Simulated scan of single mutants.
Amino acid sequence: MSIGNSPESPEDDRNFPADDRDSIGRALQQARVAAGLTVEEVSASTRVRVPIVHAIEEDDFSRCGGDVYARGHVRTLARAVGLDPAPLVEQYDAEHGGRPAPTPAAPLFEAERIRPEPRRPNWTAAMVAAIVAVVGFVGFTMFSGTSGQAGPGSVAEGPAPATKTSAPAKPKPQKPAPRPVPSDSAIAAVPQDKVTVKLTATDDKSWISAKAHDGKLLFDGLLLAGESKTFQDDERIDLILGNAGPIELYVNGKKIEDSFEAGQVERLSYTKGDPQAG
């Protein structure tokens, strides 16, 4: 009988993994081989560079540029080789500290309401009405004074010829005052003491990461086609666009005219004085 650690010793149990499933890289590699695809073919179909594909299949995610890009590459490669990406992304989150909870985007700001100017009183119509009233009163008084019977010794006279009185002029209708046209600044009002950034995915999805000037994570996730996000900070907004091609970007109410290519990764920063090159 020998003295020493037995095969069932708890110290030996620590050498066995708690989860016997394949690693993310091995699962992707096996699925690629089973599909009869080379690394170069997968890279061409997903636009993920060949060195990054090799690194991910070796479970090295340091070349992805961060968790958001690592998750995006895992999703893209899984679809390319015929795997369901959801379990692999969950496995990645479990092995790398979990996915950070996204902060809700800052609410959009309402445009300023423009109050119409109060209508001024129509003095012209009032003056015409007053003149008509005076002329009518004078005419009634004169008619009443001459309608009595003639006194003794007076000579009878024929009826006096009717005098033609001009009809009072009709007041001209007043044109309504034109309504004020809202200005561009009222339609897209943004506070001048903050930096406001709005992103819209036009025809394709993109992975977005937005941070405030103090490093606080405002958003980290996928922006689907047709979706928009607006972020605001007192000093600066830092952006990372994983697929910058379909992104339409507005900074402090003005559109950024820079053209980004599909699949291009852009790192941008904007302050209250922008828009200018990020």
Rank of each mutant, 00 (worst) to 15 (best):
I131T: 13
E117D: 11
H96I: 05
K164F: 14
A188W: 05
G145H: 08
A186I: 06
A133T: 15
P100I: 08
I131H: 11
G72K: 08
A80W: 02
E157H: 06
A186H: 04
A156R: 03
K164M: 11
V132F: 02
I187S: 08
K170F: 06
G97I: 05
E112S: 10
P152M: 12
E90W: 01
P85F: 05
P116G: 05
F137E: 10
R71G: 03
P87V: 03
T163P: 00
P161E: 12
R75T: 14
T124N: 08
P100Y: 09
A78F: 06
G139M: 15
A160M: 09
S185N: 13
P173T: 13
A105I: 03
F137I: 09
P161F: 05
P104A: 14
S154R: 06
L83G: 02
P118C: 01
E90D: 14
P182C: 02
V138E: 05
P168G: 15
P121D: 07
R113C: 00
D84R: 03
Q91A: 09
R99P: 03
G148F: 09
A129E: 13
V135W: 07
F109D: 04
A111V: 03
T141C: 09
R71A: 13
R120N: 03
A189T: 10
K172Q: 14
A101V: 14
D93I: 03
V89H: 00
P159V: 10
Q91H: 03
R115E: 13
V135F: 11
A101F: 01
A111D: 05
A125F: 08
P121S: 11
P176F: 00
A130F: 08
S185T: 13
R115L: 12
L108E: 05
R115Y: 01
V132T: 15
A86Y: 05
A125Q: 15
Q149V: 07
S144G: 10
I187C: 02
Q91I: 01
P178V: 10
R79H: 12
R120S: 06
Q174M: 13
G139Y: 09
A105W: 03
E90K: 07
G72I: 02
M127L: 15
R75P: 00
V155C: 03
A126N: 01
H96Q: 09
F109I: 14
P152I: 09
A160K: 12
A106H: 08
R75C: 10
N122F: 04
P168I: 13
Q91N: 00
H96G: 06
L108A: 02
L77W: 04
S166Q: 12
E110C: 04
R113D: 07
V128H: 11
A167D: 15
S183P: 01
P182I: 02
F140C: 04
A126W: 05
D184E: 08
W123E: 09
V89I: 15
P102C: 11
A78Q: 05
Q91W: 00
G72V: 00
P176Y: 01
T141H: 00
E117C: 00
A186K: 02
A111P: 12
P104D: 14
R115Q: 08
P85M: 10
Y92H: 08
R99K: 11
K164C: 03
I114P: 02
P178W: 07
P161L: 09
P180K: 07
R179G: 06
R120T: 12
A94V: 02
F137R: 04
G82D: 06
D93C: 12
A169V: 10
A177C: 02
